[in-house]
Design a protein around this nucleic acid. Structure first.
Lengths: 194, 194
DNA sequence: TGTACATCAGTGAACGCGCGTTCACTGATGTAC
DNA sequence: TGTACATCAGTGAACGCGCGTTCACTGATGTAC
C-alpha cells in the first residue's frame, strides 16, 4: 500500500469532520464536494473512494456533529453542582457562544428545515441513532419522575431551544440576539423549575 | 394593453402565492423558477417581468406565508372563549394538521435554517416586518403583565414551537409525531400557565 | 540485498444535468386618428 | 366606424455556471521472489 494502514480511515474521518462543519454552516445544498475536499487539500475525485455519495456523508456528518455537541453539553452539566445541571445545560445551549458558532454548534438548530425535508429518508440512519442517544443522555440531567418523562422533556426542550437558536441567528442586531437568548434561558429554566 | 389593467398585479400575486407554498415545501434551493411558473401554466421567461430575481420573491413569499398563518392563528384564538385563547393558539399551531401541511404552514418551522443562513440579508425586508407584526399580534392573546413581556413570550413560544414542528416532521413514525406534538402542547401550556 | 510487480489513495478531465437570467420575438388588445 | 400603430405580458431558445459523479491514469510504497 502506498500509505500506512491507518491512512484511509484517517482521511475518511477528516472528511466527515470537515463536512459536519460545512453542512452546518452552509446547508447541504450549498456544500460542494469539491470545496469539502479542498479543506483537506485533496481533490473532488478522491471523495468516492470513501463514500457512496453526498447523502451517505450527510448522514454520518450529522450524527458526528450531534454526538459532539451532546458530549460537550454533558461536560457542562457535570461541571456544575448536582442541583444545577439542567440549568447548566440550558445556559450552555442558549449561550451567545453557541449562537456565534454555527459550524461547531447543534446540527438540529443549524439544519432544522433540512432535517424536516429529509423526513422519512432519515429513518434508520446514524443520525436517528445519534438523536435518540442525545435525548437519552440529556434526560439524565433533567427533572422528571420517570426516565420516560425526562426523555419527553428532553425532546421538547431541545427541539424548542433549536428553534430559538435558529431564529436568533436570523436576527440582524447582536443586542437583540442576546436578548432573545436571555429570554429563552429564563423561560425554559422556569418551565423546568430549575 | 393586451390584458385588463388588473391582470399584471393578479399574476404577480399568484406567483407569490405559488412560491410561498413551494418554498415552504422544498426550500429555496430546490425551488426552481421554471417549476414555479409552471404552477400557473406560464413559462420561466415571464418571471422577470414581475420580480428582479429569485431573492426578491423569496422575501415577499415568506412575508405573505407568515401573515397568512398568523391571521389563521388569530382566528383560532378568537373562536375560543376569552380565557382559552393562548391555549387555542398553542393547540392550533402544534396540531397534526399543521404538521402535515408544510406547504401551507408556518414558514419559520418550514424554513428555520434557511432563515438562519439568510441572516443579515433579511434585515429590512418584508419578512422582518411580517415577523414583528406576527409577534405583536400573538402577544395580544398571551399572558403577561406588560405588552413587552407578552411580546417576549411570543418570541420564545413561536421560535420554540417552530423548532418542535420541524423536528416532528423529521420523525418517520406518525404515531411518534403525534406524541411529540402532544408533549409539546402540554409543555407550553404549563409553562404559560394556561 | 536487489528487482519486478501489484496495490490503491488520490488526480483531474470530462459528462450530464439543472437552473438563474437574458433577450429577441409574438400577438392580442388599447389607443390615436 | 374603421384602420394603423404602440404597448407589453408572456414565450422559448440560448448562455453561463456550478455541481455530483465517473473514469482512465499516476506514482509511492508494500510484497513476492
Amino acid at each position: 500500500m502506498r500509505y500506512p494502514a491507518t491512512h484511509k480511515d484517517d482521511t475518511r474521518a477528516r472528511i466527515v469532520r470537515a463536512a459536519s462543519r460545512r453542512f452546518r454552516r452552509d446547508g447541504p445544498d450549498r456544500t460542494a464536494i469539491g470545496d469539502l475536499m479542498g479543506d483537506l487539500r485533496l481533490t473532488h475525485g478522491g471523495f468516492y473512494r470513501h463514500f457512496r455519495g453526498k447523502d451517505e456523508l450527510f448522514g454520518e456528518a450529522l450524527a458526528e456533529a450531534l454526538r459532539d455537541v451532546s458530549l460537550r453539553l454533558e461536560r457542562a452539566a457535570l461541571a456544575a453542582p448536582e442541583g444545577g445541571r439542567a440549568q447548566a445545560i440550558i445556559d450552555a445551549y442558549l449561550s451567545p457562544e453557541h449562537l456565534g458558532d454555527v459550524a461547531g454548534g447543534c446540527p438540529i438548530a443549524a439544519l432544522a428545515s433540512d432535517l424536516s425535508r429529509a423526513g422519512r429518508s432519515l429513518h434508520g440512519t446514524a443520525f436517528e441513532a445519534a438523536a435518540r442517544e442525545h435525548m437519552g443522555r440529556m434526560a439524565n440531567y433533567l427533572p422528571g419522575d420517570t426516565l420516560d418523562a425526562r426523555r419527553r422533556t428532553a425532546r421538547v426542550l431541545f427541539s424548542g431551544m433549536a428553534g430559538t437558536m435558529a431564529m436568533g441567528r436570523a436576527l440582524a442586531d447582536p443586542k437583540r440576539q442576546r436578548e432573545v437568548l436571555a429570554e429563552a434561558r429564563q423561560f425554559y429554566r422556569t418551565a423546568l423549575g430549575v
